[in-house]
């Protein structure tokens, strides 16, 4: 690992000024991606700004039927939180199935969403739940946030402070995980709102995305059978040594059907 200057700002304002004052700073959340990346010398920030001393970022609150999770909420914290189980249980279950327990103690929602790994779980929930990403300077709709593989709408130095989730009528997440890393080879988050159904796919393609035809079919009938006649286009999906694009296409439909079934039972 290259050397760097370590700083531990105690407020969002201090983090932002430290970022601006530095040559080429990076934020550090739980380090579950950042530290392995730095060990491989794939990242060499001049300054590492540790966000763990900003208490505001670890809060979980309910406001008018919305669940607001601070960016620094660990996966463990979300998986254990009664407010999350009480409002969006599918989200608590998703957090509880990320990686392994040691990763869940350290890894954070904000880090996962900012990183936008194509195989990460949280982006699926954020997109399907039509969540709003709150940063130090603005609010960004999930539909505008995930712009490409490991790319987001965040500007340089823009800090996610929290994410606001709408409470759906029912929702579920199903993933076919890689047996070693537990990352999604294909994951589907489905959410039904009064205003419509949203379905997001993670793991299968270069970036998390919605499936219009699946959403429309579920709008008419929220059942696994409604998806039966549909096919997932494999042309846009990833192909690697873990799974072929055709296999991923198959898994997406299967995970979608299982998620719909699970959401039906959960309601």
């Amino acid at each position: 690992m290259y050397s760097f200057t370590y700083q531990k700002p105690d407020s969002v304002t201090a983090a932002r000024s430290a970022f601006e004052a530095a040559d080429d700073a990076s934020y550090l959340a739980g380090g579950m991606t950042m530290i392995p990346t730095m060990k491989q010398r794939l990242a060499m920030p001049s300054d590492l700004l540790d966000l763990s001393a900003i208490p505001d970022l670890k809060q979980i609150t309910m406001a008018d039927d919305h669940l607001v999770l601070g960016a620094m909420c660990s996966h463990h914290q979300v998986a254990m939180a009664p407010q999350v189980w009480g409002s969006i249980p599918a989200l608590a279950a998703l957090a509880g199935a990320i990686g392994d327990q040691a990763v869940r103690y350290r890894g954070t929602m904000g880090g996962s969403v900012a990183n936008n790994d194509p195989a990460a779980d949280y982006p699926g929930a954020v997109l399907a739940l039509d969540a709003t990403i709150i940063t130090d300077r603005r609010e960004i709709a999930a539909d505008d946030f995930f712009t490409g593989m490991f790319e987001t709408a965040l500007d340089a130095g823009e800090l996610i402070t929290a994410i606001r989730f709408k409470k759906p009528r029912r929702a579920a997440y199903m993933k076919f995980h890689h047996p070693a890393s537990r990352y999604a080879i294909a994951g589907v988050f489905v959410a039904e709102f009064r205003t419509g159904v949203r379905l997001a796919v993670t793991g299968a393609g270069p970036v998390v995305h919605r499936l219009d035809d699946f959403e429309q079919a579920l709008q008419k009938s929220f059942s696994p059978e409604a998806l039966e006649p549909l096919r997932v286009d494999e042309a846009a999906l990833n192909h690697d040594h873990h799974a072929s694009a055709a296999y991923r296409a198959h898994l997406v439909k299967l995970m979608a059907q299982r998620a719909v079934k699970a959401a039906g039972i959960a309601s």
Binding site: Y6, G31, I35, D50, Q101, A102, V103, Y105, R106
Partner: peptide, 12 residues
Amino acid sequence: QTVKSCTLLAVQ
């Protein structure tokens, strides 16, 4: 909490 000490900086 049980954590991976290979993925943590000593300063943390």
